[in-house]
Design a protein around this nucleic acid. Structure first.
Length: 322
DNA sequence: GCGATTTGACCTGG
DNA sequence: CCAGGTCAAATCGC
């Protein structure tokens, strides 16, 4: 489907843009006379690598999918497409689809986030990322102390959104959750509830980003509200980005699962926001590492010995034809 | 009544 | 055969 390709391309582009933005920020930091915090630089580098990792994931995913498709004469069903067949056949098709699911699953872009939540009032905050997830399973994992929970997008059926995630509490530090995302959202995040505060919202509900030396909306795309984002890049959507989605976290989880009954503390939100928005991340006890899963692609090592100025990419005008 | 969660059963890949 | 992933009936909560 065309929209699938658009989505994949948009996701890819947004990751590349984010990487570029963060690289620029890093460059500014490095060239500024003020002392450069090594941790800041490290976190920026981490994010750059993460963005490019994810971009590569999307590219390789597209590659493998497109290599599979030409054999069929009838238009092949995209894993992201919405099934519009009548109910009875629905079940039939679902069953058929099930048989292919495992292979599709393998090809789905997949990345893992390690999220540390803060303990506050004896309650820990979690895992809301702005999307609406529905838990469909929980499993004790042999080598793991804590069970793994399986979530899929609430709009799987209504909007054909096949995003899923797995949530597992870290053994070493129970305040850390490993979240593995699979696939990405084809639904709109408008469906989710935006947090009331932090970061700043303007009256029309758009997001204002304050950074030290970059003014919105040219700050990292990870920080941009969807509205602003669309103003600049009407064709781009950042729905798939867990970084971005963190900004629109709702404040509670609903289930009785071991990792639920938690809430996002304001502190957590702020720190998360700082981390995303190129602000110097305070010596937070809150850290997030995002890494592309190496089961699909090996993590590339980039040589940053190039000048961004030399590259001279003006991204709004950058020819994004891939 | 409806949607979400729980949980045992089932399926699949290694 | 086993572990991980998913399904789906039962249950819960609003």
């Amino acid at each position: 489907m065309e929209s699938d390709r658009n989505w994949e391309q948009n996701a890819l582009i947004s990751e590349l843009i984010q990487g570029l933005e963060v690289a620029r920020k890093l460059k500014e930091d490095l060239s500024s006379a003020s002392s450069v915090d090594a941790r800041d630089s490290h976190s920026l580098l981490q994010r750059i690598l993460s963005s490019y990792d994810k971009a590569l994931l999307f590219l390789r995913w597209n590659e493998s999918v497109s290599m599979q498709q030409p054999t069929k004469t009838s238009s092949p069903q995209s894993p992201l497409s919405i099934d519009k067949t009548p109910l009875r056949e629905d079940a039939e098709e679902d069953h058929q689809e099930l048989k292919h699911n495992s292979k599709k699953r393998k090809m789905m872009p997949k990345w893992t986030e390690h999220i540390r939540v803060k303990i506050e009032n004896g309650v820990e905050g979690p895992l809301e990322d702005g999307y609406s997830w529905r838990k469909y399973g929980q499993k004790d994992i042999l080598s793991a102390k804590y069970p793994r929970s399986y979530y899929r997008c609430t709009f799987r059926k209504t909007k054909g959104c096949f995003a899923t995630k797995q949530v597992q509490r870290s053994e070493e530090d129970h305040t850390i959750f490993d979240i593995t995302y699979r696939g990405s959202h084809t639904c709109k995040r408008n469906d989710a509830v935006l947090p009331p505060k932090s970061p700043d919202y303007t009256q029309d509900g758009s997001l204002t980003v304050k950074t030290d030396n970059i003014t919105a909306p040219s700050a990292s795309f990870g920080c941009m509200a969807q509205d602003n984002y669309h103003d600049l890049f009407p064709s781009l959507v950042l729905e798939n980005d867990p970084f971005f989605s963190t900004l629109s976290q709702t404040s509670s989880l609903s289930a009785n699962t071991p990792e639920s009954n938690y809430f996002v503390s304001p502190t957590f939100l702020e720190h998360e926001f700082d981390g995303v928005c190129n602000k110097p991340c305070p010596d937070s006890e809150l850290a997030r590492l995002v890494s592309a899963d190496t089961s699909i692609t090996s993590s590339p090592i980039f040589d940053f010995n190039f000048s961004l100025d030399a590259v001279g990419i003006d991204y709004p005008n950058f020819p994004f034809n891939i």
